[in-house]
Nucleic acid binder design. Sequence first.
DNA 1: CTTTGTGCAAATTCTTTGCACCAAA
DNA 2: TTTGGTGCAAAGAATTTGCACAAAG
Lengths: 141, 141
Amino acid sequence: MNTINQVKNKLLSYNVKPSLQRIEVMKYLLEYKNHPTADMIFNELSPSIPTLSKTTVYNTLKLLSDSGVIQSLNIDEKNVRYDGDLSTHAHFRCTKCGKILDIPLENQDNLNKIPMPDSRDFQITECQVYYKGECKDCQKN
Amino acid sequence: MNTINQVKNKLLSYNVKPSLQRIEVMKYLLEYKNHPTADMIFNELSPSIPTLSKTTVYNTLKLLSDSGVIQSLNIDEKNVRYDGDLSTHAHFRCTKCGKILDIPLENQDNLNKIPMPDSRDFQITECQVYYKGECKDCQKN
DNA sequence: CTTTGTGCAAATTCTTTGCACCAAA
DNA sequence: TTTGGTGCAAAGAATTTGCACAAAG
């Protein structure tokens, strides 16, 4: 459960000014772990914030990911997906139904088991692991 | 070095009819390991195939990736990238200059060291590992 | 006041589609 | 002569930009 104040403080800790719109976008990402697109967020928040514009959603998502509060995923070739969960985990996308699921990487060190490129040659700031295939539900059909 | 005939046979082995355009796109991907966009391929091939259209490049890339001859990468949020190398490797994109480099995964089994989701729940057909950061050249500046 | 955020409309960019023509089997 | 490939122009979809107005400090 994320209270408005918790969300507000989270934004503040990343130096993001907590406007109503930003708080609601962030709250949505923390509450629903569905890795939504900008469009999905707009459609979900639009009823409760009637004046909300898609531009603001885009602006906010860009600001939040640039500030490091959220991460953006390119697991879906059509739209960018967003994830408010910054803990170490991979993602799975079902190529049939499009659902995106978190895949735990058993412990925090597991990412290091992926052979890292020589740190003298690269300064790695980000690593994304994407799985694709068919989810349990879609396999039944 | 890939002769026209080697490329032609490669396409045939994947049940892709080897038209001139398809051969040239495939040859390009095998020769240049620059993970090009559709646009880059079009611009490179256009001079030597003056009648070439971007539609055909898109058609061909879709056909080749659907047929499993090449893979498409979503490491770049703007455009889809293509890779004619199907061997097991990760990719690195420099967020400064945009260059995409192959990252060897020391041996063929390394991908399996990434904790795999329970195979009863997921049928994995594909795994992509994307690193982002700054390349050696960009770190100097 | 002055700065920053919001939101409309228009623009941009990448990609796909409809369709007519062409080429190969 | 039938099937499939190519390429033009137009459409489509996601995202960005320009700009005017509103809000907050």
